[in-house]
């Protein structure tokens, strides 16, 4: 049975079907984000009476959450490595760190959105603001979804399900989480860096 197999074999337990399915899901998600990024670029000059990107966005406040989110890809990788060596408690430790980074990122983002809303910069103010909120918000929703997912993974690890199901869960989630980070690289560059420098 699965549980008796040696640690060296754990890699071969990777559910290849799940991984391919996840890759395809990411392909579909990429198209969604491409469309939303295109929408942002198209709408970025329609600011009406609202602020434009240079007025709205500042680089310094976004650096910490960006650093944490991108680091979480690395901490997750460590979790995966621990899992490969069947060190479940360390897996859970690194996964918790990943989760906390994601939650801090979400906190920053929610705070940012509230700050803007307080100044009256709401969704319906201008197409630029709407495209900003929808693009960044969709990514935020993915981080939220990933956080709930990580909570679920921790529970699975804690309750010690069969190791092969947990392993394939971790592997599938890994693809998703790295993808969410990669999307942030694009958003950070296109929206925050170029936006705050007045390119749009």
């Amino acid at each position: 049975m699965a549980e008796q197999k040696s640690a060296s074999q754990i890699k071969s337990w990777t559910e290849p079907d799940d991984r391919l399915g996840m890759w395809l899901f990411i392909a579909a998600e990429s198209v969604v984000f491409l469309c939303l990024i295109a929408t942002f670029l198209v709408s970025s000059k329609s600011t009406l009476n609202g602020p434009d990107a240079a007025e709205l966005l500042e680089l310094p406040p976004i650096l910490i959450p960006s650093f944490l989110l991108l680091s979480s890809s690395w901490t997750f990788h460590l979790a995966e490595k621990r899992m490969e060596h069947r060190n479940i408690s360390n897996t859970m430790l690194w996964l918790s760190i990943t989760l906390s980074f994601a939650l801090v990122f979400l906190g920053f983002e929610i705070y940012e959105f509230f700050e803007y809303a307080k100044e009256g910069y709401t969704l319906s103010e201008s197409p630029f603001l709407a495209s900003f909120y929808v693009l960044v918000g969709t990514h935020g929703a993915h981080v939220l979804f990933g956080s709930v997912w990580m909570g679920l993974l921790l529970w699975h690890l804690y309750t010690k399900r069969t190791i092969w199901t947990n392993w394939k869960r971790i592997r599938a989630f890994g693809l998703y989480w790295h993808f969410v980070d990669v999307v942030w690289v694009f958003i950070f560059t296109l929206v925050y860096i170029l936006g705050s420098q007045g390119v749009y």
């Binding site: 929408t39 198209v42 709408s43 329609s46 009406l48 969704l123 319906s124 201008s126 197409p127 709407a130 495209s131 929808v134």
Partner: peptide, 13 residues
């Protein structure tokens, strides 16, 4: 539903 203007004639596209 949320009164944005992505596709609106004047301001949107």
């Amino acid at each position: 539903i949320f009164a944005t203007e992505f596709f609106a004639g004047g301001s949107g596209n």
